[in-house]
Design a protein around this nucleic acid. Structure first.
Lengths: 342, 342
DNA sequence: CTGTTAGCGCCTTCAA
DNA sequence: TTGAAGGCGCTAACAG
């Protein structure tokens, strides 16, 4: 492959002119520009990003840090992000922090970003002090998705509001025996959403004079498979809830599966409600609270671009969520008038 | 942030020594090395990848080209790939080719790779002549996943074998009225798997003296939603199949959903079988043909690493697939002894 | 409008 | 075992 010097020689001009012509700068005679363009095309010339970056100090790369990558939420956010960045000539560097166990995640390191990315996007990964210091030191624009921290611009939904909607829907249907699926071990520090959702569930329940007994609060990692396992155990007991509120749709899918395996009808015997509006929620007729995940990625991309354009904005974009009632929920079997307390 | 010169000054040695010490090369007095290491740590020094790359010619980046990546299959492959590359100090550059419509994909360009990646991995994206020439010219190692082409090392499953297993299962259950969901428009040139699967379905059917009438062959893009739509139309007609073979599990999910909406029992009224063993296949009790997608990503990573180590291998790794019978399939209603022709 | 020149930060001979 | 010096390919002044 060829260098800028080759193109200069082929076009009979200096490297500086080639550089200007190729980047579309002013002050190049059209005729010269054409000659350069042709030479470059003939030689299949592309500028070396390393050389460009070394001198300009910018890389046109955006580091995207994610705790998991093959999970619907994260993959979808990244997809939205990537498309808006690509439009502006940026590419994404994937930094997957997934460790070997659920409550392990890799540390964020300087090597991921330093002279490698022009900005970083954090997807639902709260940083510890060291990591935050590291990002401060690097001085890169940072945008967070899913949880606001350190006064960086952020885009997210209000997890508590979402869970409130889900829980209130269950209660409005007359359910009182309500279970919750999706608490996580206290040791899990890398996801904040689980805590917010769990907390709000309890809060809303309390507001209505309800409590879920411990055996109806399922701790599981946020996968359908693990959720199913725990839900099956619950469904095997004599003491059954009439409704299960799941912290996420993937968890809800697991609950749906456990119910079917346990011979329970949904929503006849038990209602199930999730949060997220996973692509497959509609397919499996799951009542849920919708959030626009792709839009979150796109918004994050816009915030990054703004910061890169020198117009950083301390945004805290909170996207709307809304209840989507589908077939997995029904009034409680013995439901009196909605709103009645026992 | 600091440069190698700062570290050299702080440690009282030359930049050359710092370079050697930091990269763990021989011929550095242990005591000197320690001093350099300490200085580097104190200064939070990281080498500039651009500078390193400019002089070494290597980038430690692997370009991963994918037609979509918020789809389970692709996200999972990338996840597997990323983890094995990360172990060796490589990172992935995401090249998403998803266009605006189903049968559009962005072209592969030189700018994606040139001096940006040390190797490229193609996930299920057949290249046209121009693109192939481009990759040849760049001289980078290429590994393909999902479809073999141009004699590049590849890892994949045998799509025809997988579909054969699915179709033969349906037939062995006594089904004769078998529909197929998942053909794609002839204009779609960027996915080869749909063609192979479709072709083999027809072949196996023919071997057994069966044919699916046109109204039982559903063209849809490979999403549950679109599949559902088409399947609903089919289920609304008077002429119903007793079994639907889906080209993928996501399509099968859509068929499952359509059946339920149409008041059909699965597997009582209609059996459904997919291919892939999607994470949620087990959750939704879908009979399918299993492939190990994560392993494909990992294998691809290993092939890349081998090529980078100077031991390129013209591998054509074909991973096993196997039937997983779950609850979505049952013998045909009027099934005589298996094997009987009408 | 175009050319010359000095680095960007690092690695790699080649000497010492 | 260490240091000095020459690029890698490009951009950004500064001249002309």
């Amino acid at each position: 492959m060829s260098t800028i010097g080759d193109v200069a020689r082929a076009a009979g001009v200096s490297v500086a002119t080639v550089s200007r012509a190729l980047r579309g700068l002013e002050r190049v005679k059209p005729e010269t520009r054409d000659r350069v363009l042709k030479a470059a095309a003939d030689l299949h010339y592309s500028a070396s990003p390393a050389a460009t970056s070394l001198v300009s100090g910018r890389t046109r790369g955006i580091a995207v840090v994610t705790p998991y990558f093959n999970r619907w939420f994260f993959a979808t956010v990244i997809s939205g992000l990537e498309k808006v960045l690509r439009e502006e000539g940026y590419h994404v560097l994937l930094c997957d922090l997934e460790g070997h166990t659920f409550d392990t995640r890799l540390p964020v390191t300087q090597g991921m970003f330093w002279k490698r990315a022009d900005a970083v996007v954090l997807l639902n990964v709260p940083l510890d002090e060291t990591e935050r210091a590291l990002l401060d030191r690097l001085g890169l624009p940072v945008v967070t998705v899913g949880n606001r921290q350190a006064m960086w611009p952020s885009v997210r939904i209000d997890d508590k509001a979402a869970m409130r909607i889900a829980t209130e829907h269950a209660i409005a249907l007359g359910h009182k025996r309500i279970a919750y699926a999706g608490t996580v071990p206290a040791s899990v520090t890398h996801l904040q959403t689980p805590f917010d959702r769990r907390e709000e569930f309890a809060a809303v329940m309390a507001e209505h004079g309800l409590t879920a007994p411990a055996e109806w609060v399922l701790e599981c990692d946020w996968t359908a498979e693990d959720a199913r396992e725990h839900a099956e155990t619950m469904f095997a007991s004599a003491h059954l809830p009439t409704c299960v509120v799941a912290a996420s749709d993937e968890i809800a899918f697991g609950v749906l599966s456990a119910a079917r395996r346990s011979g329970l009808e949904v929503p006849g015997d038990v209602s199930v409600i999730g949060v997220d509006d996973h692509v497959l929620a509609d397919i499996f007729d799951l009542t849920t609270v919708r959030q626009d995940v792709l839009a979150q990625g796109q918004q994050a991309g816009i915030l990054v671009l703004e910061a890169l354009d020198g117009h950083p904005r301390d945004a805290d974009e909170v996207l709307d969520v809304s209840l989507v009632v589908r077939g997995s929920t029904a009034p409680a079997p013995s439901a009196q008038v909605a709103g009645t307390r026992s």
